[in-house]
Structures are given as structure tokens and as C-alpha cells.
Design a protein around this nucleic acid. Sequence first.
DNA 1: GATAACTTGCACACACGTGTGCAAGTTCGT
DNA 2: ACGAACTTGCACACGTGTGTGCAAGTTATC
Lengths: 225, 225
Amino acid sequence: MPTITEEVRRAPRRDAAANREALLAAASATLNEHPDAGLEAIAAAAGLSRRAVYGHFAGRDELIAALIDSGAVRLNDIAANVDHPDTPTAIALLGARLWHAVEHVQLLAAMAVREPHVDLVAGALAPVRERLAALVERGIADHGIRSDMPAETLARLIERAAIAVLHEASVARLTDAEGHRLVMLSVLGTAGLGWQEAGALIATAPELAFPPAPADPAASEGARA
Amino acid sequence: MPTITEEVRRAPRRDAAANREALLAAASATLNEHPDAGLEAIAAAAGLSRRAVYGHFAGRDELIAALIDSGAVRLNDIAANVDHPDTPTAIALLGARLWHAVEHVQLLAAMAVREPHVDLVAGALAPVRERLAALVERGIADHGIRSDMPAETLARLIERAAIAVLHEASVARLTDAEGHRLVMLSVLGTAGLGWQEAGALIATAPELAFPPAPADPAASEGARA
DNA sequence: GATAACTTGCACACACGTGTGCAAGTTCGT
DNA sequence: ACGAACTTGCACACGTGTGTGCAAGTTATC
């Protein structure tokens, strides 16, 4: 006997939850290609009718909101677990780790420019931005990175440098390894390092190697197969 | 007696041309703030009614097309007249000169992402891009800039680095002088120069000083007041 | 001041996206 | 297999933007 007050309520069907996920996935995929695709297109990509969407979300805005902060949670989580005593390495590492979540970053980056969602994305991504800002300030203080412009400015330029690689990846069909390397080069260059300096850093620091080690502090020994 | 075949055609009124210009200016201003503003808003900003727009342009698309390639002509012209034996200096100079046409760049940059106009902008801006690409290739060949990535990739990253400063200017309210300096730093950093190297270059090369000398080959002696 | 050029304001028609209601399915869970 | 959960397809209302036609106004130019 269920604990519901009046009637016997059957448990919700499992495929409903699956469809909800399918919708989110389809929305992510569709909006990445056509940032202002309609619900019709999204629903179709999920194999559902437009009408069915309203069975899972109150409307377009709620769908997108769910999408945005599911992505943001993932990115914020990554950013929180990135650090390294050498600040340039830490910044490159942050870029590289975020690179692994390309799909999310891509969507967030696209939504961050779309008028109705700017504030939402900005709010959801605040933690990542603060992490980067902290690293930049530290880098300026310990002379690890350039000190010829305000920290906030530099942080924003670095962010954009990373996103630039994202776009480059779409047009140039970069592999994961190439993207991984390119974000770091782009980010480090913006941070003030000369290209050979950046190259040497990447080649030297084992944390920046391509098949990246996991961030979990407890999983450091059981990661490699 | 006019040379028109049949009837006596009076010359078009002069204020019509003025209104056309006003529309273009208003469109430029309005679309910079709200990239998907309607004709209503644009016409209002020009002091005209929406209906009057159709007296000057066949429709929204033609208005925007006119806007885009008027801007593109300006930028292409700038790019064509930029050169310098030292490639990093040439690249910085290109960035700085384009910085002076911020309003145009800003609009073009915004339109370059808007779905209906991507191809148009890309086509109109091809000359600037080719100029940059040529400089980048030359820079790689003469070891003036980084050689750790394909020239096309580097060119695109540099382009985005410049546009990043543009956006930074909107949020941080940069002065012209600050923007001028920041584009060069951003562009040179992406090109592979270390920040102190870039700073030294900017401080040294007289062409890169803030009140920039005009590009005209004939006006080189009469520029300073 | 006559006249053509230009603008205005209204009326439409049209397209497209969102959100809702409802009757008729289909499908999962028990 | 029964019933509820879920989906579908249609209808509609609503909002917003575009493009057009037309009569009546205003303004520059001859």
C-alpha cells in the first residue's frame, strides 16, 4: 500500500524517464548545430512529437535551463578538481580537462551568446570562471604568467582563447589529441608564455600528457587498465 | 530636356539618399546592441517608419547585405594597406588598424555567427582573412612567429584573439588606447611571442605607437599636427 | 505653387514558434 | 488483460516579425 494520501498511484513508467533523457540529449545535439532550433526539431531528433515535450518540461525555457545547468554542474566539477603548484601548468590543465567535456562546453558557449539565456549561463558557469580568475591572480602574483594587463581581462581573454580552439575543432575536424594540445598552446600563449616555452612545458609536465590521468584523488593508482 | 526615353523624370530627392544612410547607420547601431532587432526598431532608430524602409531596400536581407559589404569594403581596404618587413610587427599592425574600425568589425563579427548571414560575411571578409593568412605563412617561414601548428589554424586563432579583445572592450569599457595595446598583445601572444617580447616589440616599433600614423604612402610626412 | 518624390498609417496576408485542450491511440507495469 | 502512464495528432489562441497595397499626407525641387 503506497503512502499516497488518497488513491493507489502506480509508479511512473520507466520509459518516461528514458524519453526525458532522450530529449535532453537530442536538445544538446540539435542546439549545437542550430542554436535556435525549435521544439519541433528537438522533439523529432528525440523520436518524439512536439506535444510530448510538454509532458516532461513546462516549456522550452525549462528544457534549456535543465540542459544548461546539467552541463554547468559537470564543468564546475571539473574546474574544482584542477590544481597544480605551477600556475601555467594549472591553467593548461584546466583547459585540457575542460576540453574533454567538449560537447557540454560547446553547448554552453553557444547559449552564452543567445540573448534569452546569457544570464543563466553566466550564473551557472560562475564557479569555473572564479577558478580561472583565482589561478590567473595567483599566476600574476608569482610571476608565472604575464602581468601587463588586469587579471579579470586576462582571465576573460584566456577563456575566449579556449573557446576559439573549440570552434577551430569544428572547422578543422581536430582529433581529441590535437584539440588537447591546441587548447593548452592557445591558453598558454594568451597567458603570456612564448610558444617554445609553452611547448617545453607541455612536453615536460606529465599531467599535461594526452591520455590524461583522472582527477579523482583516490583513483590515482587503479586508473590504467 | 533629360535623356530619358519617354517622360520627364525629375531627379530623386536628396533627403531620400540621406534617409538611406540614416537607415544604414541606425541598423549598424541597433544591430550592434541587439543582433536580432526587428525592422521596426531599426526604422525607429533612424527616425522613420517601418513602412519607409521598403522604399529604400527590398527587405531586411538587402538592408543587412548592404550593411555587411559596406563594412567589409572598409576592412578589406585596411587589410590591403598593411605591411611591414618584420612579420610580428605586420600582424600587430593589422590588428591595431582594424581596431580603429571597431564599429564595423563589431557588427561583422556579430553577423558572422548569425545563421542567415554566415556565408555572406565569410565571403565579404575573405580578403582580410587571406591577408592575415599570407602574413601568418610568411611568419612561419621566416621564424618570426610560432611554427607548432598549421598556418590556417593559427590564422583563425589569431582572428579570434582579436575579436576577443573586441568583446573585452564592451564589458571593460576600454579606451581606444587600451584597446589598441590589448589587441596587439592578444594577437602577438597567440602568434607565439612571449609577453615581454611582445611588450618590447610594441614599445620599440614606432608604427605600433598609439596615435597611429596613416596608412597612405603619400601622407607619411604631413601626418603629425 | 505645381508636381513628383518620399513618408505615413492603416489594412491585410503569411510564416513560424510557443503553449494548451482534448479525444484517441499505444505501451508499460502489475 | 486491465488500467494507468505516456504519446499522438489535431485544433486552437497568441505573439512576433516580414512583406504588400493603398489612400492621404508632407516635403523637396522644378
